[in-house]
């Protein structure tokens, strides 16, 4: 059982808490044993390879999916703003950006314009959604989610399709929103380079919680400095090798061939001192290498 040991108002201002939560579909655990909590003003980033269960975990947090195991607790009357990973709108529905902004609730004109200006697409307010480019559409979705003034923002790869300069600007915006509104933010990134500097906690998923920690610890760590040097500002990742595989029944096959019910650090099955061996600029999401926060925050569920 994982406890958040950092000092802070998490207990009082907790927005959502998952305890040993899991989702099972057609006999396979998509994700299992997830412990996480998000408080007001806190940014939690989920990273991990494709199929690691990041979006599934986000759907557990938002209540789109119900946990088959474990518990999910949400604060009462929790107001969520959600940017899903995938969204396809049938072109037969006429939908302008202005109408999209009011999709799930009323919104004053000023708030609508402010949110679109913040994401840089105020000029597209009357545009039809189906004519937007991928990046413009993501900005519109983000604007819609923040205009609701939510308690909890859940952003599933919010900058996909956005150009590089825009990416940095949107990450800055997300950080500003946390500062000005004090909402909690769950951010999912498949891009292992881009773990926001503003992130309080990073959780690395791969069907279960592999490890977690603060990016500050990562930035200060020797491994991190060696890997990124002077260009490391705003980036906070490090890498380790996956030395175990998760079987369909939830058990763990370790690199040394043994099988256990769970994976624990220090049980002799793991191997963790090979950080510097990996090339962060040519990472492969399908492979076994992936980035995680480093440092003393590295713990296993």
């Amino acid at each position: 059982m994982l406890m958040d040991t950092r000092a802070g108002p998490q207990g009082r201002n907790q927005l959502v808490e998952l305890r040993q939560a899991g989702i099972r579909r057609s006999g396979r655990w998509l994700v299992r044993g997830v412990d996480l909590s998000i408080g007001r003003g806190e940014i939690l980033t989920l990273i991990g390879p494709n199929g690691a269960g990041k979006s599934t975990t986000a759907k557990l947090v938002t209540g789109v999916l119900r946990a088959d195991e474990g518990t999910v607790q949400r604060a009462e009357d929790l107001r969520i703003g959600y940017v899903p990973q995938k969204l396809s709108i049938d072109w037969t529905m006429p939908l302008t950006v202005r109408r999209l902004m009011r999709l799930t609730g009323r919104l004053a004109d000023d708030d609508l314009t402010d949110a679109l200006s913040a994401t840089g697409i105020a000029h597209l307010v009357e545009a039809e959604v189906r004519h937007l480019s991928g990046g413009e559409f993501q900005r519109a979705l983000l604007a819609r989610a923040i205009a609701r003034k939510p308690d909890l923002l859940v952003l599933d790869e919010p900058v996909q399709g956005v150009d590089f300069a825009g990416e940095t600007a949107l990450y800055d915006l997300i950080r500003d929103i946390r500062k000005t509104t004090g909402c909690g933010i769950l951010l999912i990134s498949h891009d292992l380079h881009m773990v926001m500097a503003g992130t309080d906690t990073v959780i690395c998923l791969n069907g279960h919680v592999c490890c977690r920690g603060t990016p500050e610890a990562v930035s200060r760590s020797e491994d991190y400095q060696r890997l990124f040097g002077g260009n490391a500002r705003g980036l906070a990742v490090y890498s380790h090798r996956h030395d175990h595989t998760h079987l369909d029944d939830g058990r763990v096959l370790h690199g040394d061939g043994s099988i256990t019910d769970h994976c624990h650090p220090g049980d002799g099955h793991h191997d963790h001192d090979h950080h510097q061996e990996h090339d962060h600029h040519g990472h492969d999401h399908h492979g076994h290498d992936h980035a995680t926060p480093a440092g003393e925050g590295n713990r296993h569920a």
């Binding site: 209540g63 789109v64 107001r79 969204l87 529905m93 999209l100 999709l103």
Partner: peptide, 19 residues
Amino acid sequence: WRPLVASTVSEDIAEAEGL
């Protein structure tokens, strides 16, 4: 109207945002 239009655009958004 609002829940129907919202869930036509995205079931997930409609569910997450309480519709």
